[in-house]
Design a protein around this nucleic acid. Structure first.
Length: 298
DNA sequence: CTGGTCTCCTGATCGC
DNA sequence: TGCGATCAGGAGACCA
C-alpha cells in the first residue's frame, strides 16, 4: 500500500501521539508477522524458510516489543518506519521496525475510541494514557522486526539506498551509474533509492519527461538533475496532500490522503495525457503495470 | 548482473 | 445472486 509519502504521513501523525508515552502492554496476535533478526522482510521467506515455518521466529520478549519503554523517536528511511523507545533501566533504545507491505496500516486510537474494522490486527500496544497503537495488515506482506539498539538499525539501513525525499543529482548519478537495467526497474529497487514504489516511480518519470524503459546508466547530467528534482517535487506534493489513498491507506489518525486525485499517469492508462492530450500507454515492466506518455517522455 | 516468473495473502471488482 | 478470473500501493527467491 504505502510508499514514502504515506509512510512519512503516518510518521508525522503518529509522532505527537507517541513521543513521551510509555508502553504498558504489548500484544502480538500473530507471531509470524515478526521477522527474525537477520532475516529479510517479505512474506515469501517468512512462510517458506523451514527454520521459521510454524516456529517462533525470534526471541519474543516483552522488552523486544517495547513493554515498559517510553517512545523517544520515530524515524523513517524509504518505506520503513522505526519506533524507538527506551526502558527505564536500559542503556540503549529498543527498536521496532514497521514494514507495511501492500496493505499494512499503523494507527493510533484514543482511549475508548473504536477501531472501525478490527479484523487482521496482528499486533497492538497499550500506552500509559489508555490509548492504543495498532498494526493491521490484511494481506500480511508487511512485517515487524525488533532490534536491540540504534546501531543495529543503522547497520540494517546501510543496505538501503539514499532516501528519495532528499535525493540529489549526485546521489542519483552514483547509484544509477552502474545500472544497465531500465529506469523503472532501477528506481523500484530499494537499494538504489529508498522510498519509491509503483505510483511514485511512474509519476516522477512523467514529471522528468523520461521513459521507464530508458537505460539507467545512459542518463546524461541534465536528465539526472531533472529526475532528482522530479522525484523530490512529486514526493513533496504527495506529502502535502497527505499521500495517495487508492483503497485503504489512512494515517495514524485514520485520515485518508488526496494525492490520487492529482496523479498524472498512475491508474490512467488509455486516458488523455494531462500535458499533450494523447492517450497514455501502459505495459508491465518490472512485474508492475507501468503507465507513461509516448509523446512527452523520452 | 539482468529480466522474467513465481510466491506469500486477502479483498474488491468485473464479466458471465 | 453466485462464481471464477483478474488485479492491487511490496519484495524475496529462483531460473535462464
Amino acid at each position: 500500500m504505502p510508499e514514502l509519502p504515506e509512510v512519512e504521513s503516518i510518521r508525522r501523525s503518529l509522532e505527537p501521539r507517541l513521543l513521551g508515552r510509555t508502553v504498558t502492554a504489548a500484544t502480538l496476535l500473530r507471531r509470524d508477522v515478526l521477522v527474525a533478526p537477520g532475516d529479510p522482510f517479505g512474506g515469501f521467506s517468512r512462510q517458506r524458510s523451514p527454520a521459521l515455518r510454524g516456529a517462533t521466529p525470534a526471541r519474543i520478549t516483552p522488552q523486544s516489543l517495547l513493554k515498559g519503554a517510553r517512545f523517544s523517536r520515530l524515524v523513517r528511511r524509504g518505506k520503513q518506519l522505526a519506533l524507538l523507545a527506551r526502558a527505564p533501566d536500559a542503556a540503549a533504545e529498543t527498536v521496532v521496525i514497521v514494514q507495511l507491505g501492500m496493505s499494512g496500516q499503523l494507527f493510533h486510537r484514543a482511549p475508548g475510541q473504536r477501531v472501525a474494522d478490527p479484523s487482521h490486527i496482528h499486533a497492538w500496544w497499550r500506552l500509559d494514557d489508555g490509548s492504543r497503537l495498532l498494526f493491521r495488515d490484511p494481506r500480511r506482506f508487511g512485517a515487524l522486526r525488533t532490534l536491540g539498539s540504534p546501531e543495529a538499525l543503522t547497520a540494517l539501513w546501510a543496505s538501503l539506498g539514499p532516501d528519495a525525499l532528499t535525493i540529489t543529482p549526485d546521489e542519483l548519478a552514483s547509484t544509477l551509474r552502474a545500472a544497465r537495467r531500465g529506469l523503472k526497474t532501477a528506481l523500484m529497487d530499494q537499494t538504489v533509492i529508498a522510498g519509491l514504489g509503483n505510483i511514485y516511480v511512474d509519476e516522477a518519470l512523467f514529471r522528468a519527461h523520461l521513459r521507464p524503459t530508458r537505460r539507467a546508466s545512459a542518463l546524461r547530467p541534465d536528465d539526472l538533475a531533472r529526475l532528482a528534482a522530479a522525484i523530490r517535487s512529486v514526493l513533496h506534493d504527495a506529502l502535502a496532500a497527505g499521500g495517495s489513498t487508492l483503497r485503504d491507506y489512512v494515517d495514524a489518525a485514520g485520515d485518508p490522503g488526496t494525492y490520487q486525485l492529482a496523479h498524472a499517469v498512475y491508474g490512467r492508462s488509455g486516458q488523455p495525457c494531462r500535458s499533450c492530450g494523447r492517450p497514455l500507454t501502459s505495459r508491465v515492466i518490472a512485474q508492475r503495470t507501468t503507465v507513461w506518455c509516448r509523446d512527452c517522455q523520452h
